[in-house]
Write a protein that binds this DNA or RNA. Sequence first.
DNA 1: AATGAATGAGAGTTCATTCAT
DNA 2: AATGAATGAACTCTCATTCAT
Lengths: 193, 193, 193, 193
Amino acid sequence: MKDRRSELVLAAYRQIAEKGFEGLRTREVAAGVGVNIATLHYYFPTKEKLIEGVVEHAMQRFRSTLEPHGSPADQLRAYLRAVRRLLQVEPELGAVMGELALRSSRDPALSQVMAGMYELWHVTVRGLLKRAAKEGALKREYDSDEVAAIIVSTLTAMSLPTVSGGRRGDQALLQLERWLGIAGPRTTPQATD
Amino acid sequence: MKDRRSELVLAAYRQIAEKGFEGLRTREVAAGVGVNIATLHYYFPTKEKLIEGVVEHAMQRFRSTLEPHGSPADQLRAYLRAVRRLLQVEPELGAVMGELALRSSRDPALSQVMAGMYELWHVTVRGLLKRAAKEGALKREYDSDEVAAIIVSTLTAMSLPTVSGGRRGDQALLQLERWLGIAGPRTTPQATD
Amino acid sequence: MKDRRSELVLAAYRQIAEKGFEGLRTREVAAGVGVNIATLHYYFPTKEKLIEGVVEHAMQRFRSTLEPHGSPADQLRAYLRAVRRLLQVEPELGAVMGELALRSSRDPALSQVMAGMYELWHVTVRGLLKRAAKEGALKREYDSDEVAAIIVSTLTAMSLPTVSGGRRGDQALLQLERWLGIAGPRTTPQATD
Amino acid sequence: MKDRRSELVLAAYRQIAEKGFEGLRTREVAAGVGVNIATLHYYFPTKEKLIEGVVEHAMQRFRSTLEPHGSPADQLRAYLRAVRRLLQVEPELGAVMGELALRSSRDPALSQVMAGMYELWHVTVRGLLKRAAKEGALKREYDSDEVAAIIVSTLTAMSLPTVSGGRRGDQALLQLERWLGIAGPRTTPQATD
DNA sequence: AATGAATGAGAGTTCATTCAT
DNA sequence: AATGAATGAACTCTCATTCAT
């Protein structure tokens, strides 16, 4: 993360999170790192190549999000909360993933990358469901693609500013936990604003 | 739809759906309607004003999406399907709403508009739940903000290209219907694309 | 002065005084009168024709300035003061004359008009000198082109914002009166800020 | 004069002299130097900044005009002639100073610059008068603000095309010399046209 | 490895002018 | 006599990209 290339990618990543692709300017990326615009082009011949670098970085970052990090028992619940927390702590990731999602409709290569990533996410969540079911912490019928899909959907929606901003994200997550039968005691999530 | 102003807004709306804000060019919007660029500026002094016009149009379009359109009985299920279908038939709306959602994090005015719209959506869905519960078509406990929130979340995620493109959207929706106890017989939704 | 044509010319005249030719916009001229831009073009086919109208108006206005308006006796001194006062009361005239003077170097027709006007002014002043000399109110040797020229020069310089703004204009005028032997008693002109 | 920045300023200076602010076009300035319009913006972020460069240049140029350049004795007369000659040899300077004078009424910053410059000029001339009086080449009473003011006024008026074009400027100058008692022998100035 | 200087293509915006009504 | 709508041409300014050093 300390070589020029990575610095530039990170700066671009932040620019996209802040201003969207709409507001991404190579000069500002270079300035963010403190180098000349020509230096940026030394590492990335075109803006598109720089964006590819950002895609890689975002995917790597996002992959780390997917990994279950908790204990074996109530791991599923821990997972949902962890993702939620991460999206709040590092909103840039949600913003960039949103930008990439929209862009993927115009960029076949990116579309494939994103599809792969969502598939990986889906499979990861399904694996989590499977294990929880096996441990008896979850009804067997909930070990399915459908349940995995709705979990991924809910978490995805939460990365959008409009939803993530208000208390609705927490409510959706809470209901998800209830249906899965993994809700904690009487939690009354507060809206963060 | 037959006056210049509306034509221009519609052309801009389509441009945004197709190329995002990133690719919105006033000259192409004007060309899309077959008028000179100066004519566009006759109706909209700045690009920003044109975008405001698009926001209005999208909101109006989206509001019509929210309205329950089915019969009184299994209206809830009909509603979910209707929204799903509309997003597939008119993918532009989802794309534009996605663009607006991302942009709202940089545009306070837009942020307010979007928040209002999502709140309206949420309230509409909750109303639907209430009625269904009253008619006995739904467990009473499902008449709540939390359930409404997860429904809105799921539908929102489906408007994103990445999710809507694949079969995962249908799976999420199916599970939603199961939990709500309103799933139809053996439906095997096909992925479109 | 109450017909459309005159109104438009007057509005343009004021615009030029305020913003210079650099800032003259036909639309603002029309707006100043409260009519549509197309109406302006009904009266003046081109912007240039409108400017010609302004030139006429300015010349007419300026000509009235030239005319000696005082009593027969110490008319010369009265004249200098009157011009000075008029330039302060109606600074627009000085501004427009300045703009026209500069423009005349690029516009032969205007150049001729301006030259004629200055010649008329010169002759007028010389006539005043002649009469004053005849009445014994002025040394005979001061009845000359050279003296008329320096009077016109001094008054001209005073119409420029840079000079007219400060106290230097008054000082120049005072010295002129002294040399002509027509200075009043102890006058201490104040700078108008 | 050999770096890009100066070249651009000089080209703009000439454009203003030729066509006024009204006719100043950045593209023509760039073309005048033989560079792309983007290169101009590399050195001057906005047109206004370029104009500021021109103001600096004009002031510097004008300051050199102010400096007395002759011998000590009849320096005063030499000075008047020198300024007169310079304005004829380099009419651009007069034109640009005229444009700046008019613009100063709309631009407070410029107004201050111009006022400072005229004040400097005034003080310079007064210094010249003082020295001439001390040397006995001038009546003591002519060592005053009033005399300096009328000298500056006369020279200023001469920089305007309308006046400078004809023979009136020379006549005014001649009379000035007479009053100052520094006129040469029988000179019959010719109009330069 | 890094940069200052330069550029082509194109962006949003302005403006005098036209024309059917 | 007056206007709303429309336009071509041109304007200032931007941006990704190039290249000699």
